[in-house]
């Protein structure tokens, strides 16, 4: 993706938007499959959930939320540019606004999500 055109903020925001979108879609498919197992009863379902308690998956879960937050915030930027003519003049500033809003929302979320691990025992 990145070797086709060497742009700046517009290019980076676009590549990240696609990458995070496809990543969230992949998780959505996994998530639909795991919820489907609930109709096989409590034993089958609860046993399957070991996946989500695995440290690797915990990290992936936080990464998923990061992808979702970025995708949503940058999506708002895209909609602003598409429907409001003057926004295109500020698309670069809007990208940095997305980056700042991302960290402001994601960092507290990540800390809250990891609280059972961070404050274990």
């Amino acid at each position: 993706m990145l070797n086709i055109y060497r742009g700046r903020e517009g290019m980076i925001s676009w590549a990240l938007h696609r990458l995070t979108g496809l990543g969230v879609l992949l998780f959505l498919l996994i998530h639909i499959a795991d919820i489907y197992v609930i109709n096989y009863g409590p034993e089958a379902f609860d046993e399957l959930l070991f996946i989500y308690h695995n440290p690797f998956f915990r990290a992936m879960e936080v990464l998923l939320v990061a992808a979702l937050y970025y995708h949503g915030l940058n999506g708002l930027r895209i909609i602003a540019i598409d429907f409001w003519d003057r926004a295109v003049l500020y698309q670069r500033q809007l990208f940095w606004a997305v980056v700042i809003a991302f960290f402001v929302t994601f960092i507290p979320t990540a800390i809250l999500m990891l609280r059972p691990v961070l404050w274990a025992n």
């Binding site: 379902f45 609860d46 959930l49 989500y52 949503g72 999506g75 979320t109 999500m113 609280r115």
Partner: peptide, 25 residues
């Protein structure tokens, strides 16, 4: 933006994956 973020906040922030099991669903 509203529905997915609310879902994430309820399932991963207010609750965590440790609370979610068959009984929860």
């Amino acid at each position: 933006i509203f529905m997915a973020i609310f879902h994430v906040v309820v399932m991963h922030v207010v609750n965590t994956v440790d609370e979610i099991d068959f009984a929860f669903v």
